[in-house]
Amino acid sequence: MEPTVIVHMADYATCAAPQKITTIGLGSCVGVVLYDSSSGKCGMLHAMLPDSTRIRNNQNRMKFVDTGLEDLLKLMEREGVSRRKLVAKIAGGAKMFEFSGANETANIGLQNVEAAKKLLKLYGIPIIAEDTGKNYGRTIIFDPGTGKLEIKAVGHPISYI
């Protein structure tokens, strides 16, 4: 069987069943899985920041939820996936540290998750499962054969959403 596709930080990739796709050590970043059960095709994005329009250094489009999602969608459509058939699962966006006082980036995880939700709604892609927020990191593995997203976290049993 083909090896699992690894999505790095500020990166996206696609795959089709029976291959699986993973991203490792997701902290405050958000992981978005787009999935078409009829063709067994899927894509995963590992984005660091919510909004490219608010950042001057925005050439690396995969770094952001907005441009990353846009490009991943385009790639999937080029690969023959219809947007209307897609559903999404999202994970990550943890608040890794409890800073005292106001720190605008302290909850960047939440901002990443909210950006993903807002954009997916705009694209008309329903989110059918999520495991986001809290204060711990996650490794996620998606199997487009079953549609299950496996979530591994330190000190928590493995879960599937």
């Binding site: 050590g25 997701l26 660091m48 990191g137 490794t139 330190v154």
Partner: peptide, 18 residues
């Protein structure tokens, strides 16, 4: 935090990524 190194280091990485 006690966690996966990737998750812990993601925070300074994100701030730097701006």
């Amino acid at each position: 935090a006690v966690d996966m190194a990737g998750a812990i280091l993601s925070f300074p990485a994100i701030v730097n990524s701006r």
